[in-house]
Write a protein that binds this DNA or RNA. Sequence first.
DNA 1: GCAGATATGTCAACATGGCTGACGTAAAAG
DNA 2: CTTTTACGTCAGCCATGTTGACATATCTGC
Lengths: 179, 179
Amino acid sequence: MADVKGGPNPLFLREEELRQAMELLFFGYRDFTAEPDQILADYGFGRAHHRVIYFVGRHPAITVSELLAILRITKQSLSRVLGQLVREGFVTQRAGLRDRRQRLLELTDKGRELETKLSERQRVRIAKAYRKAGAEAVEGFRTVLTNIIDEPDRGRFERPEPSVKSAAKTAPVKSAVRR
Amino acid sequence: MADVKGGPNPLFLREEELRQAMELLFFGYRDFTAEPDQILADYGFGRAHHRVIYFVGRHPAITVSELLAILRITKQSLSRVLGQLVREGFVTQRAGLRDRRQRLLELTDKGRELETKLSERQRVRIAKAYRKAGAEAVEGFRTVLTNIIDEPDRGRFERPEPSVKSAAKTAPVKSAVRR
DNA sequence: GCAGATATGTCAACATGGCTGACGTAAAAG
DNA sequence: CTTTTACGTCAGCCATGTTGACATATCTGC
């Protein structure tokens, strides 16, 4: 335990830094989800319902298979929560135009209302954290988390991309920041 | 929210930015936990076991109540997984010295081995992301996530960074975004 | 020293949300 | 017309959360 070494032991520091990152994710996610979970309980819903409501709201006319790809769960699991949401009038389904096998999902007004209520808390939490941290930190947060995400979905968050190599930033697409 | 207006609908942009943050957390956590989950299945364990193993490894001689405070689950839920881990020889319990009611938890060699195996993947993932993002981004990542976490546990991640009070209230939130 | 608080464990019952496997139907595609 | 695809459904299993009640050992304060 007694680290009586000469140098600052970079291996230990690295290990410690990585562990802190892991814990930041754990505690962050724990607190990030706690508030909506409370509200969901009033509706007899759980976190799975929230995810469906969120992504349907985010991507109107999303198909079931697209939703499955995002959530990475089985269709049977999705079916259970999605079925409830449809039956209780939070989500509507309609056949696709080009492909009538598809069920395009959409939030109803009721669904949108719940979505707002749920993510309101989360938005406030993020907004506070962003404001306290400052714009530069926000960029770092985005960059690191984007790189933590596996390739298939990483594209959802593409922005400058300050890759160590190829500094070919020919297209600085800072869409969400532009004024 | 002293948002300096003047652009093309800053409210929408802000909304978009906050939603992206929410999704970064969702996708990040999803991919961060996927690999260990796979390994755990071979042992007949789940994510709950991983969390216990992780935090016991991280804080040797941790008490049950400290663990409960971190995990935010009931003692009955913890008891189930902890009991398994103890019976199967991954964790040991011994009475506290000052307070003999306490059960101080510790990993066995077997437990440490599994812990390493599990978090290895996660460490690699984080390390890659950190390396790609660079030191400045890492600081930002830490700062934002720390602020997302509720007060009681935020202290776990406090670094030099002073500004305990609201020094950020007056900080240039949006002005510095443009680079 | 005893009463009450605290740390932990346990039994029992229940809900949520994952999973697999099997099977069905409608529509698209070759 | 046959096969593949998109989606749904039934049935059962497992992991992990919950509440409530109760037990036991130990510490703490009066």
